[in-house]
Amino acid sequence: MANGSSRPLSPHLQVYRFQWTMALSITHRITGVGLTIGTLLITWWLVAAAAGPDAFATAQGFIGSWFGMLLMFGWTWALFFHLANGIRHLVWDAGYAFELQNAERGAYIVAIASIVLTLLAWIIGLIAW
């Protein structure tokens, strides 16, 4: 054995058949890290609001730029995905939906809900803007 013992090793990603549940698992982590980086923008935004109209206009200008909008769209989806999948995790923590069929059904619900909520938020947002 590679680790010099007879202890079992978990299957390596390269020999692991693709499953939606594992795709959502790693996406939950990636969106979590992405949202953590987003704390920088929230901080900038709140500091700018507290600093005055000029600083706030600069922050709003960045958010309103094409690059800012792209980031906002990504963060909107990451937020809804992490929120929906987080609720899925809390359901597991309560002891429900562990059966393979339900775990996969949850994965589809989370994936679709994150896309629908993102589009809904942006459609309402663009109308309200």
């Binding site: 609001a49 109209p53 206009a57 987080g86 609720i87 995790h89 809390l90 938020a121 309402i124 309200a128």
Partner: peptide
């Protein structure tokens, strides 16, 4: 914190959308 963030996140998203056109 995850449980608390469910209502807090929804509040944040809705509040941001409501104030999208607002001035300083």
């Amino acid at each position: 914190t995850a449980l608390a963030l469910i209502p807090l996140t929804l509040w944040f998203v809705i509040a941001v959308i409501i104030h999208l056109g607002a001035d300083y």
